[in-house]
Every structure is written in C-alpha cells, then in structure tokens.
C-alpha cells in the first residue's frame, strides 16, 4: 500500500515537473504539450476520443480474452502430450525470437483493414505469453508434491486439478499480465498499420497534423485502457491470492 502511494507521489511529481517545465522554459507546445493542454484536448474532443477509445478498448479486451483461452488450451495440450510438444515447440520457440509485432502487415493482407485484422493480430501477439506461462506453470509443480500424489494413488485428473493447477496459477497470471499489455499493443499497432479507426489511428492522425496535445490525450487514454486491462488480471490475482493465502512465487520480468 505504501509502495502504491509512493508510486502515485512520484507520478504526481513528474506531472507537476512537466507542467512547470513547459511553462517556464519556452518549449513549443507542438513539441511538448503541458498536462493542462492534454486535459484541454480531452475536454475538447470527448466524442471523437470516446468513439475511438471504445473501438480500441473492446477490440483489445476481446483479443485478450480469446488469446487467454487459446493460450491456456494449447499450453495444457502441449504439457500433456510429448508428441505435440515435439511437433510444435520448434515453431513456438522460433516465433519467440522473431519480432512478432513486425508481422502486422500480413494480417492486413489476409483480413483486410477492419476489426477482424486487428483482433486477430492482437490474439497472435498476446497468445504466446499465455502459452509459455501455462506451460512453465504446469511444468513447475514441485516434484515432491507429484511424488505425494503418486504415493496416494491420485488419478491423472486429481493430480492436475488438486496440485498441478494451483502450482501453475502464479506463472499463468504472470503470462496473463504480459498478455494484457500485448493485446492492447496488438490492436494499436494494427490501428497504426490499417489507419482506419481507434486511438492508434487518432495518434497517427494527430501526429501528422502536429496536434501534440491530441496525440498525448489519445496516449493518455491508451495508458488508461492498458491499466484497466492490467487491473482485470490483477483482480484475478488478488482473488486467487485470497484463496492461496501463501506468498505467491515471484513473477517474471520483461
């Protein structure tokens, strides 16, 4: 709680510093609009920002949910079947190394410039962290706990449900956190590339007009959407933590 307050304080200080800097140092507002100008832009174009913000938000949320489902399903399947792992893991690993976000234009070629293209790309981007998190989680069961299950004659299903799944959740949640950010990024990059609608489009449009305040206003909204998506996962983590009660194993970085 104190950490959260400190972070809030740091952010507030940063915003104040920013406003002061722009006021006292003669910077062109085209280069760096002060926070007050961003607030103004938000108030000035509510309909525009709301419309495009909604488009971005619901595509990102839907993309995230579908990616989470697909990632968990395939992750569980890969954990269960060695044959499937041998067949698919080389591709998964290869895709981990290449800059996946650069593949956005392919989705335009395949699916046109509409929402399906952006969502498919968002799912593609967000899917991998979930897959990896699920697999790492299911593989990360303490060996002693598995031995205990064997001693007690637990069935495969009981072992999965009672032991391996609870052990997997922290890793899975870490994957979902990354996926939440990735889904939003996928939609925004898709909007950059398709230039049709959404906050990414507003950002590009504003940038080309030199409307820095509008760009920053759209980016502020993007960050807010990102935090809400992240918050969804955080809420799941909190709910899980209430049941788990023990300290969760540390998540991953990056």
């Amino acid at each position: 709680m104190r950490g959260a307050l400190a972070s809030l304080g740091a952010v507030a200080a940063l915003v104040a510093l920013w406003e002061a800097a722009v006021r006292f140092i003669p910077i062109s507002p085209n280069l760096l609009a002060p926070p007050s100008a961003i607030a103004e832009a938000l108030a000035l174009h509510p309909a525009l920002l709301l419309e495009h913000g909604w488009a971005t938000a619901h595509e990102a949320l839907l993309g995230f949910l579908l990616a989470a489902l697909a990632g968990m399903a395939l992750g569980a399947a890969l954990s269960a079947s060695a044959l499937l792992r041998q067949a698919l893991m080389p591709f998964v690993l290869a895709l981990q190394i290449v800059p996946k976000m650069a593949l956005a234009p392919l989705f335009v070629v395949w699916l046109g410039v509409g929402a399906p293209c952006r969502m498919a790309f968002a799912i593609f981007i967000a899917f991998f962290p979930v897959l990896i998190g699920t697999m790492a989680g299911l593989a990360g069961t303490e060996s002693g706990a598995l031995r205990l299950c064997r001693v007690l004659g637990a069935s495969w299903w009981q072992t999965l449900w009672r032991v391996r799944l609870p052990y997997a959740v922290p890793q899975l949640l870490a994957g979902l956190k990354t996926a939440a950010t990735m889904a939003l990024l996928g939609v925004v990059i898709g909007e950059f590339v398709t230039a049709q609608q959404g906050l990414g489009y507003v950002v590009m449009f504003g940038a080309s007009l030199g409307e820095t305040a509008l760009v920053l206003a759209a980016i502020t909204l993007l960050c807010a959407i990102g935090l809400v998506l992240y918050g969804v996962v955080l809420a799941a983590e909190l709910a899980f933590g209430l049941w788990y009660k023990a300290p969760l194993p540390a998540g991953e970085f990056a």
Partner: peptide, 12 residues
Amino acid sequence: LPKVALGPLFVV
C-alpha cells in the same frame, strides 16, 4: 504502459 504505442510521439 503500452510503450510501443508511443511511437508517433517520437516522430513529433
């Protein structure tokens, strides 16, 4: 933050 989304700012 969705950092990659901030690209256009750098152009500005």
